[in-house]
Amino acid sequence: MELKVWVDGVVRVVCGLSQETSCQDVVIALAQAIGQTGRYVLIQRLRDTERQLLATERPLESLAKLGQHGNEVQFFLRRTGPSSSDGPSSKQERQSPLPLIENMH
C-alpha cells in the first residue's frame, strides 16, 4: 500500500507499506529521501484536529480505525529539532524497509 505525506509543502508518496509498517519506518524513509538530518514526527490531521503519531503506531491501522473518515486524513512530516548525532549511541543507522518515495505533481 502507499501513504501520501506532505513534506515541506510537497506531497510525497511512500510505497510498500504493510499493516506492520510503523510511523518510525515512514519517518525514516522520508527523512532519507529528502536528505535531511534531524528529529521528525508524523502528524495526522483530520479536519481541524491534529495528532502527533507515536513512533510505534501504524498509520494504516490508524486509517482503518477511522473508517469512512479515513479518506479525509492528511499526514504531514514535521521537523521537531536537530539531529542527536552528537551522542555516541546515535550512530546507529537503520535501513528503511520502504523502497520508493515519489513526489506528487
Rank of each mutant, 00 (worst) to 15 (best):
E2I: 00
L3T: 10
L3A: 10
L3D: 08
K4G: 01
V5M: 03
V10W: 06
V10T: 14
V13G: 04
V14K: 11
C15R: 13
S18L: 12
E20T: 06
S22Y: 03
Q24I: 00
D25A: 13
V26A: 04
I28W: 03
A29E: 05
L30W: 04
A31P: 02
A33Y: 12
I34D: 07
I34L: 06
I34Y: 00
G35F: 05
Q36L: 15
T37E: 14
G38C: 05
G38I: 03
V41Y: 00
V41W: 00
V41H: 01
V41R: 09
V41I: 15
L42E: 09
I43K: 07
Q44S: 12
Q44M: 15
R45K: 15
R45W: 06
R47T: 09
R47W: 11
R51P: 02
Q52T: 15
Q52C: 10
L54G: 05
E57P: 01
P59R: 08
S62T: 10
L63T: 02
L66Q: 06
L66K: 08
L66S: 01
L66N: 00
L66D: 01
H69V: 02
G70N: 07
G70M: 07
N71L: 02
N71W: 00
E72R: 08
V73F: 12
V73P: 10
F75Q: 02
F76V: 00
F76S: 00
R78Q: 12
R79F: 00
P82R: 08
S84I: 07
D86N: 03
D86C: 02
G87K: 14
G87Q: 15
P88C: 06
K91S: 12
K91M: 07
R94N: 11
R94D: 09
P97Q: 03
L98F: 14
H105L: 14
H105Q: 14
